[in-house]
């Protein structure tokens, strides 16, 4: 009986949390399309999420592409299939690794920062102060972040795709001794528009999730420093898990 009631309690808690998140999402989205808008804040968030994340996303993509080329070679060389490396690198990067690695890195960098900033504003009554100054916190804090996350992740992933493929190219040419012209031809030969587009759609979804979880956890943080710390952790962990889950669902949608 105790076991069953435990399951029941956990289910209710889960459903309540899901409901709260769904309401928060709906409220955030509705404020994205209703004036007043804050273009200055949107640009600021786009710079923070997009431009300032370029170094970390670029480095991640570069080394991912390099490792991918190296690992593919050690495996494919056994079957005399090393000519497929260029195709493996470009498809892996554009379809999966580019968006997922960029999403996870941005979740760690930006999602944590959003949760910490909004969480600190919550516990120091700055969110309440916004309300008393006739400014809706959803419009001022949440909507610009949701929009910026959704818009900037695809841009970051596009750059990450190029850098990742370049990383694979560098390793293949200068370490594995491939012919540059043949490598580039193989890269372009099997790459289709859907490969890049699916990655960019995934990136938009990941950007939205990262911003949503950062805002949601920050907005609902309680207590002092400990509460903000917990909100930051939850934001990163939940965004990372959701990125991996949604990646699976979208991959199924695009390629199954």
């Amino acid at each position: 009986m105790g076991f069953l009631s435990g399951i029941g309690r956990a289910t209710l808690v889960f459903l309540a949390a899901t409901g709260r998140l769904a309401l928060f999402t709906a409220r955030g989205l509705s404020h994205c399309v209703r004036p007043p808008f804050y273009p200055r804040l949107l640009v600021q968030q786009m710079r923070e999420i997009g431009y300032n994340s370029l170094p970390v996303v670029g480095l991640t993509a570069l080394f991912t592409g390099m490792v991918l080329a190296l690992q593919s070679y050690t495996g494919f060389a056994r079957f005399n299939a090393s000519s497929a490396i260029a195709t493996v690198v470009v498809l892996s990067i554009t379809r999966e690794l580019g968006p997922v690695m960029a999403g996870l890195m941005v979740a760690g960098r930006v999602g944590a920062a959003m949760a910490a900033e909004i969480g600190t504003m919550r516990v120091t009554e700055q969110v309440d102060a916004l309300t008393t100054l006739s400014t809706n916190p959803f419009k001022y804090l949440v909507a610009p972040r949701l929009l910026a996350g959704t818009l900037m992740l695809p841009c970051l992933v596009l750059v990450a795709d190029i850098i990742g493929v370049f990383g694979g190219y560098v390793v293949s040419i200068y370490r594995l001794g491939f012919n540059p012209s043949a490598y580039l031809t193989s890269t372009a030969q099997y790459l289709q528009t859907i490969d890049v587009v699916s990655g960019l759609v995934k990136a938009a979804a990941f950007g939205f999730i990262i911003a949503l979880m950062g805002c949601y956890n920050g907005y609902h943080s309680k207590g002092g420093a400990q509460g903000v710390g917990a909100a930051t952790t939850h934001a990163v962990v939940s965004a990372s898990i959701m990125i991996l889950m949604i990646n699976y669902l979208l991959t199924g949608l695009f390629f199954s």
Binding site: E117, M121, Q126, A129, L133, S134, T135
Partner: peptide, 27 residues
């Protein structure tokens, strides 16, 4: 309404004048 919060609740991302003028600019 105007409100003076216990801890001040000033927006630390904005300079002092923008804090004071916040309700005028945004509101």
């Amino acid at each position: 309404f105007g409100m003076l919060f216990q801890g001040g609740a000033l927006f630390d991302s904005l300079p002092v004048w923008q804090n004071v003028a916040f309700g005028l600019i945004q509101g």
